[in-house]
Design a protein around this nucleic acid. Sequence first.
DNA 1: CTGTTAGCGCATTCAT
DNA 2: ATGAATGCGCTAACAG
Lengths: 355, 355
Amino acid sequence: MTVTLADVAARARVSPATVSRVLNGNYPVAASTRERVLRAVDDLDYVLNGPASALAAATSDLVGILVNDIADPFFGIMAGAAQTEIGGPGDGSGRAGGEKLAIVCNTGGSPERELTYLTLLQRQRAAAVVLTGGAVEDPAHQAAMSAKLAKLADAGTRVVLCGRPPLPDSEAVVAALAFDNRGGGRRLTEHLLSLGHRRIGYVAGPLERTTTRHRLEGHRDAMRAAGLAGDEERLTVHGPYDRRSGYDATHELLRREPEVTAVVAANDTVALGASAAIRDRGLRIPEDISVAGFDDLPFSVDAVPALTTVRLPLFEAGARAGRLAMGKEKPPPGGIATIAAELMVRGSTAPPRVG
Amino acid sequence: MTVTLADVAARARVSPATVSRVLNGNYPVAASTRERVLRAVDDLDYVLNGPASALAAATSDLVGILVNDIADPFFGIMAGAAQTEIGGPGDGSGRAGGEKLAIVCNTGGSPERELTYLTLLQRQRAAAVVLTGGAVEDPAHQAAMSAKLAKLADAGTRVVLCGRPPLPDSEAVVAALAFDNRGGGRRLTEHLLSLGHRRIGYVAGPLERTTTRHRLEGHRDAMRAAGLAGDEERLTVHGPYDRRSGYDATHELLRREPEVTAVVAANDTVALGASAAIRDRGLRIPEDISVAGFDDLPFSVDAVPALTTVRLPLFEAGARAGRLAMGKEKPPPGGIATIAAELMVRGSTAPPRVG
DNA sequence: CTGTTAGCGCATTCAT
DNA sequence: ATGAATGCGCTAACAG
């Protein structure tokens, strides 16, 4: 029923070994034989059996990309970029050559699912794994992750972190590309302070995530440097990285502290919700309250007014992670690189009203 | 080095077959033995060899989800929803039970890559494949797709279409969930007509895509019914489904035809770009020009003014496709279901200025 | 309910 | 440059 390597060999009048060699191309084969084999492959419409191949070779051509939320462009952009480097351009024939199969796995931000996916990828003997986005800071989970990644690395899987800080002690990881969330957060708040804001609310991401913590720390560093420490707790509300959360949290924040003149959101999506909440209270942006986000997702420039935010080079970082996973690029010194975050000042921030 | 089923069997003092049975759970095993085996698995930190398993069983636990653009929430939402149904909830142990591995493949809208990914999935003996979003209408590609899907189905892979019209003659497909793009497009334009608009510009998606054609046909149906046929070509500009394209195309449209009082965009993302272009020309929305989108993505309600659009139940459709792919839900009669599209009237559309 | 026996389809030694 | 032989780790009949 299903055509195998042996069938192709028979039709091309060569041995199975030869067919295998032309298909993998890592071995000298006479041009004439190669041609004969390829024709037989086409004639028979032969498709390599991936599992059999992976079993025999003890490696597969799967590359996993883990994301926290596939519906969030923050991850989609990185994953798509990584995939372009991993999947190869294809040869236009649809005939699948030696390229890898880049596959995106959606953890939904759940530590358990993250581990489960890693196990599944380990089971598939994945060639590489790219972990994107912030990590959960629970010590137990971190330990489990380190152990799991070590095991993957042991089995020959290349592990790359993208937009995620390096793990405590992991020589298992080929490279870690970390965003400068802290620096970005600090510069963003410094910008607001320089405009004259003093009471700045912060709609933070979920607790126990590195991204949340680093951005918040940057914010507080700036506040402290301006002599504005003390009110952190009251001026901070936590919630998921989504629009709804930004909306609800901002209402809560403004109820708690009506004197706020600026709201910093955990990311652009949250900022969108925050903006909606502010408008629903009859306030104008930026005249009554300034709003700022983080990430500079594509829609942020189209917000009205355009959103002041911190740009993260998501595409570039994802592409680099993809190359690193493929071994196409040399890892940075020490395996760790910090990716700069750039402040983008736009219309949603302005000096506070006097009085 | 790497621990195998046999090692587990030895430690649990049972035969390899028994270990296989408890791991797959499709066969009666004494509770005491099962427990012994599971303990051995944990002790040895055993991870099943996916390729070997797939080879022996002639099926794998991979389920492919093909998307046109992973950075676009339109696809992200569907893919994420499908994945929740496919991946299973996990048992919270991170130990990967019998769940499938849902993997998202990003075609970038390229027909070649679409075929390549299908070949790769065929190679992996995928359990199921979900194709999301519009298809390219090139006859050669359609034929190639039909053939490829037939081969996949032959090999036991379940094929499900989500947000994509059924193929000409394909009993290969388990089920096709098609959005009512035509009806939605028609109702949207009817809404504009009822407001009094007569010169309506259309920023369409890329040529030769089913989604583009159906939405455009709905629009033109409504125009024709209102006796407004004739200017189709001049009032339509095509481009990719992205923000930039919406921006450029709208400038082109307004240059070509300044009397336009409303712009219908191919989707919400394009509508965002269109809105920016309109504002950059010093025009107000909706006072000077009304704008409408399609899809009702999460950010659309936050646009200012909120975007009038057509809501597609992306999450529900994706989840249903996931269940269909898993055989957890009965296919609709004839294998084809049309998913309704709901008009969402919001602030971005209003009657045209008189005079 | 459990053990035994055969492959699954391919990559890779070794030969030649 | 090519062919023959071996085994990757597991599942699926068959016994029992």
